[in-house]
Design a protein around this nucleic acid. Structure first.
Lengths: 194, 194
DNA sequence: CAACTCGGTGAGTGTGTACTCAGTAAAGGG
DNA sequence: CCCTTTACTGAGTACACACTCACCGAGTTG
């Protein structure tokens, strides 16, 4: 890579990093492209050399984050079959991206179809993984013969619900962190045989 | 009331009705004040004679709807103590306003603080009512000695979750209707002693 | 019925924002 | 060393939207 290409890629990454940061703080709709450019330390116009429009920027950012997240989940599920450990780690992952994905999820309906599809894909992926883990555990008599769908609905529903509270509890700290113990307790109660 | 006052009130109500209709269809942020005026059959400027700004219109509409909803819930809970009936009726109520409140809830984070507070108030009200019903039931040995908080988290979390799916399942029909049986089943399992 | 009140009108204004484009300077190539 | 290519710049454009205001005419009042 020559000097120009290096510079170009550097700028590209600066913009994405800045966008992620501001989106977490203010949400996507509330962030003007000019602000992203300013935060990235480039001219407003530069942004549109790297992305044809704001949506493309959001989608590329989402793709990158989704890939990271998906890899972490796969790794996690391959490495352990203990439901409590998986849950804990999973909640840690959610927590790390809490601001970004939850703000995205909340803006979803106002936003474009492709974003919606991506978020939904991510969720179906997670459900699928969990489903397999639990199913295998049941076969091996590790877990109780629960209604898997109910258990997963509880898990995802609860997380969704807590995240939706986020803007209300504006205090410092992670929403997931706060509710982690009760989520784990309930999932354990649901899954482990009495 | 003289002719002028009647006319004024009529216009006021026309605007609110039109606003509700369009908000359900397109969400609040995506609806321009000019469109509301057009749908109401009044001039754009007329809207601002009746409401100082768009937010006030939203808040008045929300107040009206909240009052209706709250009354229905109170009545429902006074009239019956059978949890399954209460749940069914409650889900019917949610369903009737599904479009309006769920679109509101989804836009919340982008929107103004007072709206957030009102939605939150509504939820705390509902939780409170349910809490009382279940608590009373437990005292009278009607329901299992469940962890009330978990049960309610499941209920509200799940409903929230299903509503968040709404824009994805754009097909006709109510989201709540679709998931009602599984919500009721799980709540019954949680609440009724084995 | 003349004078006045007041709800309604809609073209106009100000603002915020996504996106453009003519110009600039540094890098690359012959 | 000069010419071309290219990433970048930032003032400018187009547009959408909330909100205004000078004017109108029907309703009310004495």
């Amino acid at each position: 890579m020559n000097k120009r290409q290096v510079q170009k890629q550097f700028t590209h990454e600066k913009i994405i990093a800045a966008a992620k940061q501001i989106f977490i703080e203010k949400g996507i709709i509330n962030t003007a492209t000019a602000q992203i450019a300013e935060a990235a330390g480039v001219a407003h116009g530069t942004l549109f050399l790297h992305f044809p429009n704001k949506d493309s920027l959001v989608i590329e950012l989402l793709d990158v984050e989704l890939a990271k997240f998906s890899d972490s989940i796969k790794k996690l599920i391959v490495e352990t079959s203990d439901i409590v450990t998986i849950l804990e780690q999973y909640l840690n992952l959610i927590q790390a991206e809490e601001g970004f994905f939850s703000s995205l999820a909340r803006e979803l309906p106002d936003y474009k179809a492709e974003l919606r599809r991506k978020i939904l894909f991510r969720e179906s992926l997670l459900r699928e993984h969990f489903y397999r883990v639990i199913e295998k555990g049941i076969e091996q008599n590790i877990y109780a013969k629960v209604d898997i769908t109910s258990a997963l609905t509880f898990l995802f529903g609860t997380i969704n619900y807590y995240l939706s509270l986020k803007t209300s509890f504006v205090q410092e700290g992670s929403v997931i962190e706060k509710f982690k113990p009760s989520i784990i307790k309930t999932m354990r109660d649901l899954l482990l045989p009495a």
